[in-house]
Structure formats: C-alpha cells, structure tokens
Amino acid sequence: MLLQEDLQSTSAHTRPSILIGAGGTGGHIYPGLALAAAILRARPGARIDFVGTIRGLEGRLITGYPLHTVDMVPMIRSQALRFPLALARASLQCRALIRRVGAGVVVGMGGYSSAPLIAGARLAGVPALVHESNAVPGRSNRFSAALTSHVALAMPSDGLAGRVVGMPLMPGLLGGSRAEARQAYGVAEGTRLIIVNGGSAGAVRLNAAAVELAGRWRDRRDVRLVIKAGAEGADVLNDRLAALGAAHLATAVPYLDRMDLVYAAADAMVCRSGSSTVAELDVCGVPAVLVPYPHAPHDHQTRNAMTLKDAVVLPDHELSGAALERALSSLSARSAGGHSPHLDAADRLAAWTLELIK
C-alpha cells in the first residue's frame, strides 16, 4: 500500500494544477471526485478543475471544485453526423483551458466529456492519463487510449491494455459500525437485512421483483427488505407492499443517503453491476445478487459482475420474485471486506497523476 509520504514526493511542483474529465453519469463522476480527494490528501495545495458538459450529472454532483463545460456530444449513432465537428471544437476548447489554468496533467475518467480533454492535452503537449472503470472499455476511452500511453484500469479490461490500479472510491465506506447501522435501520438481532438498490435512478425491474419477493415472504418475521425506489417513487411501491400484506417486512425509500450505513448494516444486496457498485461490494464484503443492466454498451455490466467473487449473477430476463428468492438463498455469508485492491486505488491513481507532471 502506498504511504502518504510516497504520494507527497511525486512532484516537485509547489502547486500542481490538474484537470479531470468526469461527466455524464455517477459512474464517471464519483471516481473522479475520489481521485481529486486523494490528490488533495497528497498535495493539499494542488489546484483541481473538472471538465464536463451541460448534459450530464456533473453540474449537480461536482461541488467544491471549478467545473468547466465544453461543447461535446455523446458518442452514439444518433449524433454521428455532429460528432466529428463537436470533438474538434471541444478539443480546441480543452487545449485553451489547459493553457489558461496551467494544467500540468489531465486525467480522463471516461464518458464522452473526457475524450476532448485527452485530445486537448495531446494538442497542448501535456501528459494525459486515462482511467477505464469497466471490464469492457467504452467508446470514449478506446479513442482516448490511442492518444496516450498512460492507461489505468479498474479491473482487467477486454481490448484495452493498461495498468490495473482498481476503482477510486470515496473515503468513508468502511467507517460505519455494524451495530449502529443496524440500529439506524431498526433491524433486530437475528433478522436478515436485504437492500435492493437500482442505482441513482432506481430500477423498475428490480423494484418489481423485490415487491413480488416481499409478497412471497409476507408470513416471515426473520427478514427485512429495504427497496430504493428511485424515479418510480417510494409511495407507489409502499402502496403495493401494503396491498400484498408485506408492509411489515418491506419498505421503499426514495434514496439511500448514507452508503456507509447501508454497507455496514446489509446482510445481502440486490443491485445492478456498474463498476463502482462492484468495487464497493468487494471492499465492504457484502454478499450480492447482481442483475446486470441488459442495455449497457457491450454488455459491460455482465463482465463487471463476473469479476466479483461469490456474487450470484442473475440475468435481467430471468428476474422475478421466485428467481430472486433462489439467488438470495444461495449467497455466502458476509466477509470481513477491506482486502480489496480497490481500497487504495484512489491513492495509487493520485500518485501516478502527480508523477506525470513535468
């Protein structure tokens, strides 16, 4: 494990300036924020700016750092005619930004907003580092990796060569006391707590299967289900649970604000298999039923799920209350967690970033 003094010696600059491209979804933004926090732990005087677009979640999720937006469009078929011009324009915008803030290095965390940042760094003659979070690289990072020799991987990746450093995670995931977390959820000793988490927007398919499962378990008193409703709405799901006579064992909530408490309290989780979720489960040692999002590009969520030891992978088209019941019954017990390569990935990536500053 890297020591703090090792990180602090990676650059002779008194105030390094770093640009991080992280936009679109939380799967790109949160690792970027974790990297920023690790850089500041190593070099408290560092200047860190983020680059994104007006389209994604970055305007809401990135706080405490300057956020610069560029005129980039997604790398999707419907934008094929606009893409070349948008990439050229956004790359020139990034080159100008790099020079304006005096960036010594740029880091692209994936997503279409990071591609022009890597291209802009190439134009400006500034070192660039790319981080790929999934087991199958996205279009943006496949493009970006052709422009730099510095490629970091969260896990071994199909079709992208690089150094495996793990997934940068925000600090605090392992800070929760299990006893306090269980008390916060009102879970009695001997009761199995299962958390169903469909991601930032929830997942209708997971919600439906969880409600069906609660109906099957309506006579049980040894289990508790907490369902993150997401966009579908907690009131709607709680009405369904009440109609099934399962309100005593299952509750829908709008959000899961304290993930440290979630991971400390849960005996099992049911969730999609985005790269951050897979890494967090690995670090925290929570057994999981993973239901990969079937429309993820290149089916990367299935490949992500396969990297998590002892998880049960349940294809979305097979998902039902009965299938979920069978999958949960086959899970192993919680492990101690904390031995994952993702645990200090943010520090490793921060050290590499600072090493690249000329």
Rank of each mutant, 00 (worst) to 15 (best):
A119S: 09
R47S: 12
G32L: 07
Y293N: 13
R163I: 15
V262E: 00
S276E: 03
V101T: 02
V126E: 09
R41G: 05
Q93C: 05
P44S: 04
R303E: 14
I357W: 00
L169F: 14
P254Y: 13
L174R: 12
P168E: 02
S114H: 06
D347Y: 07
M109Q: 02
C271I: 07
A86Y: 03
G274L: 05
R334F: 15
V105R: 03
V223N: 00
L40W: 13
V130M: 02
G23D: 05
I48V: 04
A350P: 13
R89P: 01
E58D: 11
L19M: 01
L173K: 08
I194T: 06
G64W: 12
P294I: 07
I194N: 05
P116C: 03
E58H: 08
L81D: 11
S157H: 06
L169T: 11
L57I: 09
D158Q: 08
T25F: 01
P137M: 10
V313M: 11
R303G: 11
G245P: 11
P44I: 05
A229G: 09
A22P: 00
D347L: 15
S113P: 01
G338K: 07
A288K: 14
S114D: 01
E318W: 15
P287R: 10
S140R: 02
G230E: 06
H298F: 07
H342V: 04
V253H: 01
A42S: 03
A229K: 07
A34Q: 07
G125C: 12
L290H: 11
V126W: 08
T302N: 12
E318Y: 06
A203C: 12
L2F: 00
I54Y: 12
L244A: 10
Q301A: 14
V101I: 01
N141C: 12
R326P: 09
V223Q: 02
R218A: 12
P294T: 05
A305M: 04
G199R: 14
H68M: 02
L225A: 15
R192K: 02
L319K: 06
A38I: 00
A268E: 11
D222Y: 05
V291H: 07
A42W: 07
P74R: 00
L123Q: 13
I227K: 13
D235R: 14
S275M: 14
I54L: 10
A264P: 14
G108E: 12
L349C: 03
V106K: 01
V70I: 14
L349T: 03
A229W: 04
V223D: 00
V130Q: 01
H150Y: 02
V196A: 15
T191S: 02
H248V: 12
R182W: 03
S133T: 11
R15G: 07
H68N: 08
S9L: 10
H150A: 08
N304H: 11
T148S: 10
A250Y: 10
A229V: 12
A336S: 13
A305T: 03
L33C: 02
R224L: 15
D299F: 14
L85G: 08
A88M: 15
G166Q: 15
R272P: 11
L153D: 01
G215H: 13
